[in-house]
Design a protein around this nucleic acid. Sequence first.
DNA 1: TAAATGACTTAGG
DNA 2: CCCTAAGCCATTT
Length: 120
Amino acid sequence: MSETPPPTPDDLDGLSFAERVQRVVAAIPEGRVTSYGAVAAICGAPRAARGVGAVLNGLAPEEEVPWWRVVNRIGVLSIPAELGRRTLQRTLLVAEGVAFRTENQVEMERHLWPAGDEVD
DNA sequence: TAAATGACTTAGG
DNA sequence: CCCTAAGCCATTT
């Protein structure tokens, strides 16, 4: 059985890019992570990785979107440390059981979502 | 409407 | 693998 599969193009049909991003990120299971590019690809815009970051950056608290489960392609936390939010992201990920390779880099190959070879 | 910004990614050295 | 430069795109001013 598969765990919380990503939204299908049909589910995202009719939604704006920002809505799609929120929908996809909301589907990331606890303890799993993905990259901005992967989210963009699922949204149907593989080149819009930066756009994903823009959407997450403008998220309102009431959106309740697990933005901390999105890192860059190599698993590094792309949030500016000056704002202090990067530390929050690391704390949230650790609390979910995500293993870190370094202080700012997660084992994204181990926690990557969606799973690459998941056969039922 | 146009210009600037940034929580990205890829290509070259 | 690390660093630099260029490309890409949605959001914000």
